[in-house]
């Protein structure tokens, strides 16, 4: 089987079956997946930060702007909005002892992504978020399933 395409920080990939796409080593970053099971079109945005500053060009770097950008791209590729469902993976707190000085970016990323999904009227179909462990997530456009592995535990599927 073909290797999945890797999607790095602040990047976005939109494609269709039978492709697979993968976000490797998600810590506080969140992978937002959108999928239309009828056309098997979907995509992922690998977001780093919760909220974009005014006038940013890097829409896929921020949760609040990436979701809208990802939505318009999957629609261009042939997905139908009413069939779309979303999944979220990541948003961990990798260094919890630093929480005195810095905010929990992982949690904020999840919150902003959910808010954006709600505002755009997209149903959240699954999530594997928060905690203190990193994750790798591979999205199979054939089935719409996202399989998640961590550094030391078995994989699970959402």
């Amino acid at each position: 089987m073909k290797e999945p395409e890797l999607v790095g920080i602040a990047q976005m990939v939109v494609t269709k079956a039978p492709e697979r796409i993968c976000c490797m080593g998600l810590g506080s970053c969140v992978a937002v997946f959108l999928y239309d099971p009828t056309t098997k079109v979907g995509g992922v945005a690998h977001v780093l930060l919760p909220r974009a500053p005014q006038g940013t060009k890097m829409l896929t770097k921020y949760a609040n702007t990436a979701v809208g950008k990802l939505l318009s791209e999957v629609l261009v590729k042939g997905a139908r909005k009413e069939h779309l469902r979303a999944k979220l993976v990541g948003g961990a707190q990798m260094f919890p002892n630093l929480s005195i000085s810095v905010s929990d970016i992982g949690k904020e990323n999840c919150d902003e992504a959910k808010k954006a999904l709600r505002q755009l009227g997209i149903r959240l179909a699954g999530e594997d978020i928060h905690g203190t462990r990193g994750r790798s997530a591979t999205f199979d456009l054939e089935t719409g399933r996202v399989s998640i592995t961590t550094a030391f535990s078995d994989s699970r599927v959402i």
Partner: peptide, 8 residues
Amino acid sequence: LLGAVLDL
């Protein structure tokens, strides 16, 4: 995972 360590 290195990627997760680097995120923050």
